[in-house]
């Protein structure tokens, strides 16, 4: 199963990005074969609707789980329509959150901020 995390830079020691839609990259980790990859987030430079475009990117890359600190309503709609689960990260460390997720210690993200007409931070 593929897990995606919005990140600030291309490094496993890197920080989780506070924004979902405008994260510069997504870190993808496949739990079955251990493959990892960094996806450039084309949505980051969008005029608007960045969250939707970022969510579409993850759908197109067959992601099953998203770990993020926050997420907008519109992005969540897209992710949920594709049967993805969204969990709330607890710290800014990528590997830490992955480990906690593996141990079943992350909670589902259930509060989504309203769509800011595509201009959320």
């Amino acid at each position: 199963m593929r897990i995606a995390i919005p990140v600030e830079d291309i490094s496993v020691e890197g920080k989780v990005c506070p924004s979902f839609g405008r994260a510069p990259y997504f870190y993808l980790y496949d739990t079955e074969d251990g493959h990892t990859l960094f996806l450039q987030n084309s949505a980051a430079e969008s005029q608007g609707g960045a969250g939707i475009k970022a969510a579409q990117l993850l759908v197109d890359n067959q992601v099953a789980v998203v770990l993020a600190p926050r997420c907008g309503e519109n992005s969540a709609k897209v992710l949920h329509s594709a049967n993805m689960h969204i969990y709330k990260t607890v710290s800014s460390g990528v590997s830490e959150n992955l480990a906690l997720f593996a141990q079943g210690k992350l909670a589902l993200l259930d509060k989504f901020h309203a769509g800011f007409l595509g201009h959320a931070e």
């Binding site: 901020h113 800011f116 007409l117 201009h119 959320a120 931070e121």
Partner: peptide, 9 residues
């Protein structure tokens, strides 16, 4: 729109 954008965050 500009007001709604300023509400974000």
């Amino acid at each position: 729109c500009p007001v709604i954008a300023s509400l974000s965050g």
